[in-house]
Design a protein around this nucleic acid. Sequence first.
DNA 1: CGCGGGATTGACTTGGGTCAACTGTAGTGG
DNA 2: CCACTACAGTTGACCCAAGTCAATCCCGCG
Lengths: 197, 197
Amino acid sequence: MIRYIDDVEGHRQIVSFHVPGDFVDLHGYPLRVLDHSIATITDALIAVVPHSQLSQIMDSDPTLARKLWAATLLDAAMHREWLFRLGRLEAVGRIAHFLAETDARLQAIGLSDGRTCALPITQGDLAEITGLTSIHVNRVLRTLREENICLLRASRLEILDRHRLYRIGQFDPTYLYLKATPPTSAAGAESARQQRE
Amino acid sequence: MIRYIDDVEGHRQIVSFHVPGDFVDLHGYPLRVLDHSIATITDALIAVVPHSQLSQIMDSDPTLARKLWAATLLDAAMHREWLFRLGRLEAVGRIAHFLAETDARLQAIGLSDGRTCALPITQGDLAEITGLTSIHVNRVLRTLREENICLLRASRLEILDRHRLYRIGQFDPTYLYLKATPPTSAAGAESARQQRE
DNA sequence: CGCGGGATTGACTTGGGTCAACTGTAGTGG
DNA sequence: CCACTACAGTTGACCCAAGTCAATCCCGCG
C-alpha cells in the first residue's frame, strides 16, 4: 500500500510505501483527519481497528500506547530519510536507496532472502516515489542492470551487489530501527553515511 | 531550529524547520535514539523536558498523551508535504511553498502580521531546505522579487501577492492543522491543491 | 487475433548545477 | 576613523542530468 499527495494536475507524489504487517493508517487516530490519500497497489488483506479500541489502549496500557506512538514515529523517520533521498541524491542514488530500503524492510519481515524478493511495482510507481519520470527510471534501471548491481523485472527485485547498491544510495538502515541487524551480507556496507571524514 | 541529515560529503538536507513554541525533540522519547541531527540557526531559548516526566504523563493523563502524540504526527504531516514539495515542484514552487508554509506557521503563533515577518535564514539554508544550490535559490528569489510576489531581504520576508505565492507553491495550509484559519487574506487561495479537474 | 498497459529507445530541450568572478556589508582591531 | 577580514548575496558563462515528445516493442489476456 502507498500513501500519496496529488498535485494540481493530478500527478501524485508517493510519500510512503507499506509492506505487509504495517499499521498503515495509525496517523488517522491522533490527527482525526488525514492530510493525504492511501491506496493499494496490489491485492491486500486489511485489518481494521476502530478508534474506540485505540482509545481504550491509550487509557489502560501506557506501554502498548507508547509502542503505537513509536510505530507512527518510525513512519516519520522514514519520511525524513525520503526527504534526504529527494533533496540530496540524484536519480541513481534515489532509486538505489529506495530499493535498498525496501529490501531491508522485507528482509525484516521474512519476505526477502537477501538476494531476491517480490516487489510488485511498476516503473511508473517508482517514478512517483523518487520524483522522476518513468522514462528516466527506466534509463536508470537499465544502467543498474548493466552494471550488475541489481535487477528489477517481472515484479521481482534481485540484488546482485548489495555493497555497491548501498553505497550508491548512501543507504544506512539504522533509521529503520530494526530489532536485529538484517541477517545477510549487509555488514560490509552498513554505515555508508558515516564514511565522511 | 532545524533538523537535518548529512550526506557522505557532509552536505546537509534540512528535513524540518522549527518556530518558537515547537516541541522540537519529542520524537526522541518514543524512539529513544534519534535518526537525525538538530541545530539552531539563530539564538534560541530552550526548555528541556526529562523523559521521566513524559512517562508520567503517559501513565496518568491519556488525553495529554494523545496531544503529545498528535504533535509529533504534525511533524510527520509536514514531512509529507515537504516530500511533495521536493518530488513534484520545481525550484520556484519549492521556495514559494516553503515561504508560504513558514509564514502561515508564524502567523499561527502571532509572529507574522500577514504581510511581513522576521525570517532569519540565509539563501544557503533555503537551498538545504529545498534541495537546490544557493546560487539557484538566489536566481529564484530575484524573479519572485521582480514579479512582485515576495521579498526576502535582511532576515525579513515580505509577502506582496499571497495569492500568487500560494498558487506557485501549490500551498494549501490544511495539513498544518491550525485551529483557526489563518487571520488574513489567505481565503482566496486556500485550496490551490483542489483546483484539479 | 487484436488490445492495452507497461517497458524501452532515440532525438531534442531545458531547468538547475558548476565554476568563477565580483559586490555588498557587518564586524574587528589598530 | 579606516584598513582588513569574512561571509552572504549577485551575476554571467557554460554544461549536464533529467524532462518531453514520439515511436516502438513486448507480453498477458479476453
